[in-house]
């Protein structure tokens, strides 16, 4: 039997990068996937390539947090009680404190962190999840543990995510809901395209080769860990942060 057979799994940020890879692998493992994000067209494209039936697209606006909470409830009503939720929606900025704006700070904290809380709040209510088979996974970052210049806001948003995962793991353990996080170093996604553009292709390749001895991390690598944390194979694991370093101890684009 596949690892997520019969489960309903909601994935935010499912339209690209890590979220897309997690949606695809969840479906391959037998889950029905709620592809959540803001771009209907891109989400529909991902939904149409998922193996199996019963997948759906849900649109949310990160500025409307009560709307995110209601969406979680709507997914449970429309697709059945949730067996998994992955918050993969995220944005990254590399900006020095002197260059950033309050809008950037607030947007980033909301998308990377507060949306996670709003969704979890909507999903982790009696009747909306399957007791003892509900796993919540936050896609975080190694930046939360040790970040270089220009990452203060991004790192803080991911550290906030990590801290909330630790607390929620305790808060919900008796109700059979698990919370874990995954902290990768930079992953080969549209998010790293900017670094590639800034550094130039060859300098970027050289940089990755030097700093990540095990190779550039692919979205599928992160998805493999997410599937493990969603599945019963990790049924006693909660409140943990899984590090995907690819051998790099620290990381800096600046």
């Amino acid at each position: 039997m596949a690892d997520l057979e019969g489960r309903v799994v909601a994935v935010t940020g499912a339209s690209s990068g890590i979220g897309r890879a997690i949606a695809i692998q969840s479906a391959s493992e037998g889950a029905r996937v709620a592809c959540c994000g803001r771009n209907a067209e891109k989400l529909e494209a991902v939904r149409s390539e998922l193996p199996g039936d019963g997948h759906a697209v849900y649109i949310f606006d990160s500025e409307d947090l009560p709307g995110v909470e209601s969406m979680a409830a709507a997914i449970a009503k429309g697709m059945g009680p949730l067996g998994g939720f992955v918050h993969s929606a995220g944005v990254s900025v590399t900006q020095l404190l002197r260059d950033t704006s309050y809008d950037v700070m607030e947007d980033l904290l909301r998308i990377n962190f507060t949306v996670f809380l709003a969704f979890a709040r909507g999903a982790c209510r009696r009747g909306r999840y399957v007791q003892s088979a509900m796993s919540v996974v936050g896609i975080s970052s190694m930046a939360a543990l040790s970040a270089d210049s220009g990452m203060s806001i991004y790192a803080a948003s991911k550290a906030a995510l990590n801290a909330s995962i630790k607390s929620l793991a305790k808060e919900y353990a008796s109700r059979g809901v698990r919370f874990n996080g995954i902290c990768p170093n930079p992953v080969n996604t549209p998010m790293t395209d900017k670094a590639r553009f800034l550094m130039g292709d060859s300098a970027f390749a050289e940089f990755i080769e030097k700093s990540m001895p095990l190779g550039l991390i692919e979205p599928e690598d992160v998805a493999d860990s997410a599937i493990f944390l969603l599945s019963d194979k990790s049924r006693r694991i909660t409140g943990s942060l899984l590090e995907i370093t690819s051998g790099a101890s620290s990381f800096s684009y600046v």
């Binding site: 020095l96 260059d99 800034l198 130039g200 600046v254």
Partner: peptide, 23 residues
């Protein structure tokens, strides 16, 4: 330095809507 260059990149993006690349 690297921080000065980063600030220039962001200034071009914010004020001139221009993406500077490595070259």
């Amino acid at each position: 330095d690297s921080l000065g260059r980063l600030s220039i990149i962001i200034m071009f993006d914010q004020k001139f809507n221009k993406n500077l690349n490595a070259e």
